[in-house]
Amino acid sequence: MDIDWGALAGVFGVSLGITVVVVVMFALGLAAWARAGHEEPAPDVSRGRHQKVAVVTAVLCFAACLAVAAYGIDLIVPG
């Protein structure tokens, strides 16, 4: 049995990188969702365009996380 250490390191590096990207995107989505006022509303926060931009940012971040997860499942499950 021969192990291709270069390929193993490549798979490890890509997996680690994608994991970090997904965690950061999810954290940014949560921060944008909170900024949009979907938790407790702050008394000094004005509503309007900033709220819409924050909601769109949160949805895009969550959609990116979902897309990565769906692609990973597609790779694993034979079809």
Results as ranks from 00 to 15, higher is better:
residue 2 D to R: 01
residue 2 D to Q: 05
residue 3 I to S: 02
residue 3 I to F: 12
residue 4 D to C: 10
residue 5 W to K: 02
residue 6 G to I: 13
residue 6 G to A: 15
residue 7 A to C: 05
residue 7 A to S: 05
residue 7 A to K: 12
residue 8 L to T: 07
residue 8 L to A: 11
residue 8 L to E: 14
residue 9 A to I: 00
residue 9 A to H: 03
residue 10 G to N: 04
residue 10 G to K: 04
residue 11 V to G: 02
residue 12 F to Q: 06
residue 12 F to H: 05
residue 12 F to L: 09
residue 13 G to H: 13
residue 13 G to N: 10
residue 14 V to H: 04
residue 14 V to R: 01
residue 14 V to K: 01
residue 14 V to S: 05
residue 15 S to T: 11
residue 16 L to T: 06
residue 16 L to G: 09
residue 17 G to A: 12
residue 17 G to D: 06
residue 19 T to N: 07
residue 20 V to S: 08
residue 21 V to Y: 13
residue 22 V to I: 07
residue 22 V to R: 00
residue 22 V to D: 07
residue 23 V to N: 01
residue 23 V to A: 08
residue 23 V to W: 07
residue 24 V to C: 09
residue 24 V to S: 05
residue 24 V to E: 15
residue 25 M to D: 00
residue 25 M to A: 11
residue 25 M to W: 11
residue 26 F to M: 01
residue 26 F to Q: 01
residue 27 A to S: 08
residue 28 L to H: 08
residue 30 L to K: 12
residue 30 L to Y: 08
residue 31 A to F: 12
residue 31 A to N: 09
residue 31 A to Y: 09
residue 31 A to S: 08
residue 32 A to E: 03
residue 32 A to V: 01
residue 32 A to T: 04
residue 32 A to C: 02
residue 32 A to W: 02
residue 33 W to P: 00
residue 34 A to M: 12
residue 34 A to H: 02
residue 35 R to D: 15
residue 35 R to G: 08
residue 36 A to F: 07
residue 37 G to W: 13
residue 37 G to L: 02
residue 37 G to P: 01
residue 38 H to P: 00
residue 38 H to M: 06
residue 38 H to K: 05
residue 39 E to Y: 13
residue 39 E to A: 11
residue 39 E to N: 07
residue 39 E to H: 08
residue 39 E to V: 05
residue 40 E to P: 01
residue 41 P to L: 14
residue 41 P to G: 02
residue 42 A to M: 04
residue 42 A to G: 00
residue 42 A to R: 12
residue 44 D to F: 10
residue 44 D to E: 14
residue 44 D to S: 00
residue 44 D to M: 04
residue 44 D to N: 03
residue 45 V to R: 09
residue 45 V to F: 14
residue 46 S to G: 09
residue 46 S to D: 15
residue 46 S to W: 14
residue 47 R to Q: 08
residue 48 G to N: 06
residue 48 G to A: 07
residue 49 R to E: 15
residue 50 H to Q: 10
residue 51 Q to F: 04
residue 51 Q to Y: 03
residue 52 K to D: 11
residue 52 K to S: 08
residue 53 V to E: 14
residue 53 V to T: 11
residue 54 A to F: 11
residue 54 A to M: 03
residue 55 V to I: 15
residue 55 V to R: 10
residue 56 V to C: 02
residue 56 V to P: 00
residue 57 T to L: 09
residue 59 V to C: 04
residue 59 V to Q: 07
residue 59 V to W: 09
residue 60 L to G: 01
residue 60 L to W: 05
residue 60 L to T: 05
residue 60 L to A: 11
residue 61 C to D: 01
residue 61 C to G: 00
residue 62 F to Y: 06
residue 62 F to N: 00
residue 63 A to L: 09
residue 63 A to S: 06
residue 63 A to Q: 05
residue 64 A to E: 10
residue 64 A to I: 07
residue 64 A to L: 09
residue 65 C to L: 06
residue 65 C to W: 03
residue 65 C to R: 01
residue 66 L to H: 06
residue 66 L to D: 03
residue 67 A to N: 03
residue 68 V to S: 03
residue 68 V to E: 10
residue 69 A to H: 07
residue 69 A to M: 13
residue 69 A to W: 14
residue 70 A to H: 03
residue 70 A to I: 06
residue 71 Y to F: 15
residue 71 Y to D: 12
residue 71 Y to I: 03
residue 71 Y to N: 04
residue 72 G to D: 13
residue 72 G to L: 09
residue 74 D to R: 01
residue 75 L to I: 10
residue 76 I to K: 08
residue 76 I to C: 02
residue 76 I to W: 15
residue 78 P to M: 10
residue 78 P to R: 11
residue 78 P to D: 13
residue 79 G to P: 01
